[in-house]
Design a protein around this nucleic acid. Sequence first.
RNA 1: GUCGGAGUGGCGGAAUAGGCAGACGCGCCAGCCUAAGGAGCUGGUGCCCGCAAGGGCGUGGGGGUUCAAGUCCCCCCUCCGACACCA
Length: 822
Amino acid sequence: MADVYDPQAIEQRWQTRWDVEGTYQVENDDPRPHWYTLCMYPYPSGSAHMGHVRNYTFGDVIVRYRTMNGYAVLSPMGFDSFGLPAENAAIKTGRHPREFTDERIVQLRSSILRIGAVYDWRRQVTSHSPEYQRWTQWIFLKFLEAGLAYRRNAPVNWCPGCQTVLANEQVLADGTCERSGDAVEKRDLNQWFLKITDYAQQLLDDLDGLDWPERVKTMQRNWIGRSEGAEFSMPFTDGSGNLIEGVAALQVFTTRPDTAFGMTYAVMAPEHPLVADIVSEDQRRAVEDFIALARQSSDVERMSSEGSLDKRGVFTGAHVRNPFTGRPVPVYLADYVLMGYGTGAIMAVPAEDQRDWDFAMAHGLPIIRTIATPEDFDGEAYTGDGVHVNSEWLDGMAKDEAIEAAIAFLEREGIGEGRINFRLRDWLVSRQRFWGCPIPVVHCASCGVVPVPVEQLPVLAPDDVEFLPTGESPLRAHEGFLHTTCPSCGAAAQRETDTMDTFVDSSWYFLRFTEPWNDDSPFSAAAADSWMAVDQYIGGVEHAILHLMYARFFTKALSDLGVAPAGLREPFTRLFTQGMIRLGGDKMSKSKGNLVAPEEILDAQGADALRLAHMFVGPPQDDVDWEGVGIDGCARFLQRVWRLAQGEVGQLPIQRERSPRDVEILRSCHRLIVKVDEDFERWSYNTAVASFMEFTNELYRYVQSEQGPEAGTLAECVDTLLLLMAPMAPHITAELWEMRRGGHIHLERWPEADPALLVVDTVTLVVQVNGKVRDRIEVDAAISEDAARDLALASEKVQSFLEGAEIRKVISRPPNLVNLVV
RNA sequence: GUCGGAGUGGCGGAAUAGGCAGACGCGCCAGCCUAAGGAGCUGGUGCCCGCAAGGGCGUGGGGGUUCAAGUCCCCCCUCCGACACCA
């Protein structure tokens, strides 16, 4: 047997076979227990990069492991094929984004195949396919019908150069457009929103039941941003406290109603609708200048702490009556108060809020402490707990008690109530883009917004379009697309030209995978029921908030709308987020130009070595530096396994009675089974690889030992090693298995450890004196506490350290450890 | 600023429930094999003292709990990540 390990030939052969034989195709009615493994479907960017390789290798290991363990495993793959890069390329080259995208899908798909990852390709889903668009639009209309989709005026990022709205991600840190470099402005536009805020509380609560990384859950909790407090109203007055008639009262939200006696002014957001009504004549000019300034400045400028605070706020000339004291306080505008959160207005308590403190100092406003500060406190605003002072009927109370009392007061007076606020906003899904899924409505002069009838779906963007260098969506200028008739009254009407955010596509693709051929609905509840929720979802931590939050929202909403099963409240039971790949400290990325092409490694050392190297380099959730990925070591290891399995190492096996040495290696073999199972379950692939290496080293010593290997023992050890390695190194193990045993290793059952071989009868007892190891003694595993102690005391080495000193205490933890304290 | 995560040999990392720190790999050193070795095989390799036997020190720093701490508690430092005028 002189076959050389030739990864290229082997890998190609097996990849073809898995594909042709449909090894990993699975039916919905498969009688085996179901398991759904999913890697986040990729944006088709061309050939796979190392991040893809890492991601899909993890997924593939699970697919193969679960399959060998007797599960019907759903392992689909698709492409998140709408998005900006294709459109930008179209603007540059004039080519239709579909051509560009389809080419890249072919590239990416073939490089995913080359790493040996297996999928049920019959289920492939692409966001831009007409069928998928049809059902995305169908879902949108369901949402619209249910009031979960709505249109309203909203301030958006507007690029004057591109003549279009930009997503927040497209605005650079300095407030300029990533494409044109122009300064991005705020503009009010009529935009489509999805009402994710309806689900804020559920999205928060249901996090508790998910087996997700704690940091991802924390990020989602912060993003949802629940805060408890009170909302109440304050009537506008003049400077002496006389009520101003005909103006609505000012609504404010606060988490600290207990500090209201310390309110020395109030602040409204510059965009607040009441501003025009309450500004005094002598302040009108200053207020208008301030509003204009705030409007021009980008969010980034506004959020920064740069710039002096006295310039960032202005007195309105109006006052409101503090309901707690009955006295008027001045009302200011300041850009640190945001219209989008709470009520867009606050009561300001400088003594107990640092930001209010800073503003008060800059504007010469009074500061009244309402909570006694601790003795050693030398800060400015004090936000901790303490006894209330200067607060009349709240005096003497602690924080929590006082909050309750203050809310009770507001409710009694009928001016406010306890209130929960969320930071989460409704999801703005409108994009003024061409390469996205069109929003399926028409605008009719007499009927208003009218949904496109479902039998007319999908609404597809036309092919004969010209991409303008300005970046403006060609849909807006396409007469054939634009003009239509109103489905309701039949009069001439205009199509909506906004397309949906691509996150909409990725919010339900995992459901479509359960039944991608369904022609009557996006998926049937039965199909969803048979596979959902996804048992293991795998992807990058960069999606911790947006994608994972939107997908959760869609699942809940579709469940409530009766599209998805009623009991399906969460899409992803278990989530794993892999670390990033870096090179020399930088994130590996196209824009940084520091990519290492997987192809070169696949050509040289092969997919199995590359996969193994990714598994071995460190904990999967940690970032990895490519420098640390030891491809050569892994390739060398696979060579060792190859030679061992081919019988090229050591003495020829013979048939004979099993010796203690043979049994010893068998024990190692069965311990390995247990170890690998444990490691796979806890995502500790790096240590699993280490134990493969360790066992292989042991086998090398075994076959090279004087006694030589016993045939049956060696065969069992090598076969078991191959089976355990099959998920990680699928090609080489399949090849060796076929050569040795015939048949297909990936259809074999996962090995089970023989309990009899796991029983250990001797153990190394560690003997410590004052916690320092002084001796090691081989003992019976069932040794008693007393026997262990006696053995320890009898040890010569131990005696020399005791030097006759009095033993104060003996800790005996048989069979592992005895500690003698002197 | 707030919230998370992390800090262990020359390097990547291991130590799963408080019980032998450094598994496994890389690198390096030596031996074998060889015409040769950028192949293969065997062994060694935390630091310090010592010819050795042996001993001491050692998981970012400081303190604590414990018979016993990389692991638990308190304080501090550094790095990474997320959110950042959220009322």
